[in-house]
């Protein structure tokens, strides 16, 4: 595993030394700005909620439609080049002929993707100290910690899906579109299917709700840190990384 750090460093350098990183960060900053503006607007109206469930802070980030769309676009954009670009340019050959294993390559690429994803969340976090200190607004920290943990494990899962599709094809567009399709399925299709099933009180409504990412993140946002969701995210992540390693191994044999 000693080569992981070297590959990770190289990938992060590639990312942060390119203008793409700053453009994506600027886009996320703009979304965070609008999101926070909306939050301040809601918070200044008189609050008469009966429990933490209806606290507007719970829907900061997790309830933002723009945030989810941005994530569904940004993660494929970040991960599509991780392995597909190496294959397209042929650098994967030199990488795999070096004394590194496929597992090390996949882990390093995945970690690079996760770090990039976490960097995208920073613009949302930057407003909170200002709200607490400048606005003297004593919001609850617990739900935000829970949300941060949930978004991190979710990002790990999403990135592993991106890494897998990046390993499968050398065409970056195909990798990005495939990743987007799966994220779309996990995010919106499960949510819509749950709404449909719940409205008709179908038996599979509850299992659907459990796998619907939107509801998982909503639960995290309300301060309910459910270890089952964390296990689910990490399991999916491990499985996708395993498949990515196997795909790379089969490529090496070819």
């Amino acid at each position: 595993m000693r080569h992981v750090t070297a590959i990770l460093r190289r990938d992060l350098a590639n990312y942060f030394l390119s203008p793409t990183a700053y453009l994506i960060l600027l886009a996320f900053q703009a979304i965070a700005w609008l999101n926070f503006w909306e939050l301040v607007d809601i918070l200044t109206r008189r609050q008469v909620a009966f429990s933490t469930l209806n606290d507007p802070m719970n829907t900061y980030i997790s309830g933002s439609f723009a945030f989810w769309i941005a994530i569904m676009v940004a993660i494929p954009a970040l991960t599509m080049r991780l392995l597909a670009e190496e294959r397209r340019s042929g650098t994967i050959e030199s990488l795999l002929t070096a004394p590194v294993t496929e597992t090390e390559v996949v882990l390093a690429k995945w970690l690079a993707g996760v770090f990039m994803y976490l960097a995208l969340l920073l613009p949302f976090a930057i407003y909170l100290p200002f709200l607490r200190n400048l606005g003297r607004f004593d919001f609850e920290l617990g739900p935000l910690i829970s949300l941060a943990i949930g978004l991190t494990t979710l990002g790990m899962m999403f990135t592993s899906i991106g890494v897998f599709f990046s390993a499968v094809t050398k065409n970056q567009i195909v990798a990005a579109v495939s990743t987007f399709a799966v994220l779309f399925l996990l995010m919106l299709v499960t949510m819509m299917a749950y709404s449909y099933a719940a409205e008709r009180r179908l038996a599979w409504a509850e299992p659907l709700r459990f796998v619907a990412v939107f509801y998982q993140v909503h639960a995290f946002g309300t301060g309910r840190l459910d270890p089952r969701f964390l296990v689910l995210h990490l399991s999916a992540c491990i499985f996708m990384l395993y498949l990515s390693v196997k795909v790379l191994e089969s490529r090496r044999d070819q």
Partner: peptide, 25 residues
């Protein structure tokens, strides 16, 4: 449960939104 309302006049609201945004940009 205590539902908190943010007490902010227009100046404070502008500072709250703009200061971190400008710094970040």
């Amino acid at each position: 449960h205590t539902a908190l309302t943010l007490s902010a006049d227009p100046t404070l609201r502008a500072r709250l939104i703009l200061v971190p945004t400008v710094l970040s940009f």
